[in-house]
Nucleic acid binder design. Structure first.
Lengths: 127, 127
DNA sequence: CTCTAACATCGACGTAGATCGATATATGAC
DNA sequence: GTCATATATCGATCTACGTCGATGTTAGAG
């Protein structure tokens, strides 16, 4: 839900996937091919150090949001590279994006992170 | 600690690094360069669908351990490819490895998964 | 010893992706 | 309108890595 991508009719539409809780716990039962693809794609987004630092920078910010202009100079990468990584994080549902005038502000999406954490959760205790 | 890798003597052994809790929560404070590198490397291991299915297959097994010979035919990959992925998972500390005769048995390492889950945890509540 | 099966290693190939400079687009100031 | 700044897109380059066939290694059976 949310994030509607294309509305009702979506013919091909590779994604729609990423959204939401993402996946059942890896440890609970063997992942299907589709589940594995989806989860792997999510972790791939987190598998780059620059993206991790970008996300961390924004998620840990006391104001709760950060202007892109602030992070461009912090890490040792060019502006196009930073822009690229922010886009990847946004498309993965990890960052919310809001344009105000010339600037773009980013906020972390805690629910998305929680979804990934769920996938790493231990199985339900049996009694 | 734990995770002794090969028993006492292990000569070359590139790692030793990865071990343990891995990283402070991403959301708590901005990651350092080193922390980001380490965490990214960990997530990279989980960013391949075949590896995820392999790990899931083993972690979800009721016996708690799985022979490599059982998983070779399950996924649609060659034996060298499966062997490669099992090695990556083992070196990342996600799988324990025990050779018995001709066969090799793998077990999931829950603590390692918990470490990664920690890194995705929300920050401590303030009061 | 020979033979066979399980697993690992090697080398090569193909694709994905991180990076940058150049350039395009958008917004506000003047 | 012009100009400057913030951000996005494009195209090219370089490297990382998933994959496989061929081959090597180890272990048990006979």
């Amino acid at each position: 839900m949310l994030e509607g991508t294309s509305t009702y009719v979506n013919m091909v539409t590779v994604d729609v996937k990423q959204i939401d809780v993402c996946c059942a716990p890896v440890v609970a039962s063997p992942l299907s091919d589709a589940e594995a693809e989806e989860l792997a794609a999510a972790f791939k987004v987190l598998s780059d150090p620059v993206r991790l630092r970008l996300f961390s920078l924004i998620a840990a910010d006391p104001e709760g949001e950060v202007c892109a202009c602030e992070v461009v100079d912090v890490l040792d990468r060019s502006q196009p590279t930073i822009s690229h990584h922010l886009k990847v994080l946004h498309e993965a549902g990890l960052l919310d994006r809001e344009k105000r005038g010339t600037w773009v502000w980013y906020r972390a999406v805690p629910a998305r992170l929680a979804g990934l954490r769920e996938a790493l959760s231990p199985p339900r205790r049996r009694r």
